[in-house]
Design a protein around this nucleic acid. Structure first.
Lengths: 130, 130
DNA sequence: ATTGTATTTTAGCATTTGCTTAAATAAACA
DNA sequence: TGTTTATTTAAGCAAATGCTAAAATACAAT
């Protein structure tokens, strides 16, 4: 049985396009599609300035409540709560109730994933890294 | 000279709040403020599913043009071009013209910063890492 | 049961995002 | 010089985001 693989250049207008390269890229994107979704799902939330601070503070302090965070960040409790909800919905953080206070902490999953950044941040070495 | 540091709990309503902890957090946020800005600036863009793919493809292939990317991603050239513009405006990528084709590539700065993620993605080990 | 404390949720609104389609540039080449 | 090729830009629009202010919920303590 012969399988014909037509590597025609049907959408890229560029005439000198490297069709092998393009097909390699297509395969790669298809192969890693789930990982892209997972990663962008997390980075989308971590990319917000306020939420990045929240995530980092939880990394450093292990656990904090909305009220602590609203104080630290100088924001409304309601605003912070809404950020926490997004982070919780997507499993970046989890909750534990202690009496009347609800403490938030990083899930292990995302602690591991975001750690490379937190280490850089922790040492304030952003400018050295780049 | 004596400096009085009033550690009153003036905004967090929670009565048992750990004021030392809150002040430590406030100092940390103030100290790392520039780094938070820098990092969220990049992650905000990398957090988009399409742009994450673009960044990763540039990481793997060294350089690609809009047309290649539009083909690989199955998107309009215009749509991809607008993503590339954002990435270029914020210095995540840079351009080099070769004849009629404009090639995009990662800046060293962000190649280093995003590398931890790309390595995980590259090996498709997201599920092992977390 | 009632009050107080901690937090979430809802509705509303201005702003931003990401796309589409169409028009505009920019440089190579006949 | 005009045409082709590669790409960007602009206008427009639906959907998403992030906040405020007000109302609702959850649990503790009396």
């Amino acid at each position: 049985m012969t399988i014909f693989v037509f590597m025609e250049n049907n959408s890229c207008i560029r005439q000198q396009a490297d069709i092998k390269q393009i097909n390699r890229c297509k395969d790669r994107v298809a192969e890693l599609n789930g990982s892209f979704d997972y990663l962008s799902n997390g980075l989308e939330l971590a990319g917000n300035n306020v939420r990045l601070k929240i995530l980092f503070l939880l990394y450093e302090e292990k656990q904090l409540c909305v009220c602590d965070l609203s104080d630290v960040l100088g924001m409304t409790i309601s605003a912070v709560s809404q950020h926490l909800r997004k982070l919780k919905d997507r499993k970046l953080i989890e909750t534990e109730r202690q009496a009347q206070t609800i403490f938030y902490s990083l899930t292990n999953e995302y602690k591991n994933l975001l750690e490379p950044f937190f280490i850089i941040l922790d040492e304030n070495k952003i400018l050295e890294t780049i």
